[in-house]
């Protein structure tokens, strides 16, 4: 008995000794780089007075929340941003998903070239591309319009909305499709009943990434949208640039960060972390 106890105790000690210090160091580093700014900003959102030498704010409260959230331009911008983002994501999915399926499954001449063309949009210096587009949009009277912003942001979504779905469709085992044909399904039926459901979690990940990144897109929104179309990030930037108190920006940051973070968490729960990993080339 005693012998056994000693042995198992020794076993535990060995296991405890194998602490992964490198891993912990990395984690600590990441925490400082990512979490610290988050925390500081979050604290700012609730600080009413916070002057330089103090480590914690002198006075906390919800005053700035009231100020910020009672502004009309904030709510207008929020609804506008949601409208633009939803439109962009929906159109992008409608264009890109069928294209992705074609790239993944069909073998047509010029396939690789076309695929490259889709992706190469991302290789241009983005700002230059937007400026060039802006000059074209000017002549088309698209600058400063809802559809102008939608169009330019659509271009920015192509990379993720093609790339991730292509690997999603490629990740569907051909034999699953063949098995469905085998028991009598037509190619169309196979797509709806087998291929699409199998690829869905990863497609959903692509939609989510596109939605969030489009919502926070600034360059195009700035050059094409302003002054008539002011999206949420534009409002945030103007708060900061116009030297209103830092708190306005911080409040909006927390206000927007919380829902998108919760959305991501929910998505992870629903489809499992591997859907993201698979989408990004797994």
């Amino acid at each position: 008995m005693t012998d056994l106890a000693v042995l198992s105790g020794a076993g535990k000690r060995v296991r405890r000794a194998a602490v992964d210090w490198t891993g912990i160091a990395f984690l600590a580093g990441l925490a400082v780089v990512i979490l610290l700014p988050l925390i500081v900003t979050a604290v700012w959102a609730f600080a009413e007075v916070w002057r330089f030498p103090a480590i914690v704010p002198q006075r906390m409260g919800l005053g700035y929340w009231q100020d910020t959230l009672s502004r009309n331009d904030v709510w207008t911008a929020l609804w506008l941003s949601l409208g633009i983002t939803t439109t962009v994501t929906a159109i992008s999915a409608a264009i890109c998903f069928p294209a992705a399926y074609a790239f993944a499954r069909l073998d047509f001449p010029g396939r690789n070239l076309l695929f490259l063309a889709f992706l190469s949009v991302q290789a241009f210096p983005k700002f230059g591309l937007i400026v060039a587009t802006a000059t074209i949009f000017l002549t088309l009277h698209l600058v400063g319009t809802f559809w102008g912003v939608v169009l330019i942001q659509l271009v920015g979504t192509l990379l993720y909305m093609i790339w991730i779905p292509v690997s999603a469709f490629q990740g569907v085992d051909r034999r699953l499709e063949e098995a469905a044909r085998d028991v009598g399904a037509t190619p169309m039926r196979v797509f709806w009943s087998i291929t699409l459901p199998q690829a869905l979690p990863t497609l959903f990940a692509a939609i989510l990434i596109t939605f969030v990144s489009t919502f926070y897109e600034t360059d195009a929104a700035w050059l094409i949208g302003l002054p008539n179309v002011r999206t949420m990030p534009m409002v945030m930037i103007s708060f900061i640039n116009n030297a209103l108190e830092v708190q306005y920006g911080a409040v909006l940051f927390v206000f927007l960060w919380v829902p998108s973070f919760l959305l991501m968490l929910a998505a992870r729960r629903v489809m499992g972390a591997d859907a993201f990993a698979r989408g990004l080339g797994g």
Partner: peptide, 30 residues
């Protein structure tokens, strides 16, 4: 003729079951 119009049925090495359907769903599909 394509597979769906032949009176054949194949059992694949990798079983090729549809992971998003139950056992009943897999069998009932055809």
């Amino acid at each position: 003729l394509p597979p769906e119009r032949r009176p054949t049925a194949m059992v694949f090495q990798s079983h090729a079951l549809w992971s998003h359907m139950t056992v009943h769903g897999n069998i009932a599909f055809g």
